[in-house]
Amino acid sequence: MFTDVATIIKLASFGGAGICIGLGAIGAAVGEGYTAGMANLSISHKPERSGDIMKNMLVGQAVAESAGIFALVIAIVLIFMDASSTNLLTAAALFGAGICMGFGAIGSGIGSGYPGGEACLGLSRQPSVSNRLMTNMLIGSAVCQTPAIFSMVVSLMLIFKNIGDLPLAPTWAALLGAGISTGVAAIGSGMGGGMTAGASCESIARNPETLGRVTTTMLVGQAVSQTPSIFGLLVSFILMFKTFPESSTLSAAMALLGAGICMGFGGIGPGIGNGMTAQGAVKWVSRNIEAAGELMRTMLVGQAVSQSTAIYAMVISLVLVFVV
């Protein structure tokens, strides 16, 4: 068995860094692969516009990669920072930070591939609107990065948190749970936001006149899709900043870990579902602009109802933290 605390901390930070960069790179790669596949398709449709399409793909990829670069920064910090702490809690915090950023980058990486791909396809269909299409794609994929930014904030706070003399026994679970909560909940919101942005690019290529309404609907839909990741952030902050009384029982630790897992996984489904709703609404705003108000209202109600399972997960998490 390892008895040396420094070794365990090193192991935890290396493991966290590996998860972080591995998952972050996979997410960005899937997104870029989607964009590249769509670009191939559109170049084969319209070979004479290949220059424009490749330019669009380049710019889209550069922005879509941001989530992966966040993961890289966190991984480098985890590997090269010399943790002089002799507290075992540091190991939990560093591992939690790696998990948080790794999972948080997947959703945004995959998600921001959709607007890039749809924009490439749209360029082959409607060459005259290339400027508007690219602007819309960039706004969409920049908003997609929000869950990844949330995860980066949480993992930086976990890395640089002043552990002090907090009791080890339940706090390790709280720190690990804080990482899982924000990181995993960000997957759904990132993918949902990406679906919405992709639909908006497709819509603008179909009917460029409706640019204003489509962009507004997209932004509102993406903002509401971010709600599950905001819930995840809320649970993380509570787990990080509440001081838990020392107790050596297993159940106290498992309650805190369970709170993080519950909110994290509970956020995936509603995030994707909200994205699907916004996707449908954005697509049809461009086809039937007269019904835009009706569509926005239905989208908001539908998204609100499909969020309710995320809210149940948040309630269970809060019960696990505060009541049990």
């Binding site: 993080g260 519950c262 489904g269 994707i272 449908g280 697509k283 049809w284 539908g302 499909s306």
Partner: peptide
């Protein structure tokens, strides 16, 4: 409890969102 609610929330969340997306399409039509 955490696992039950966490994983249990995935399916209904996606499903309800899908239903709402289809409703939006239908209202557009």
């Amino acid at each position: 409890a955490g696992l039950a609610m966490g994983f249990g929330a995935i399916g209904p969340g996606v499903g309800e969102g899908f239903a709402a997306g289809k409703a939006c399409e239908a209202i557009g039509k």
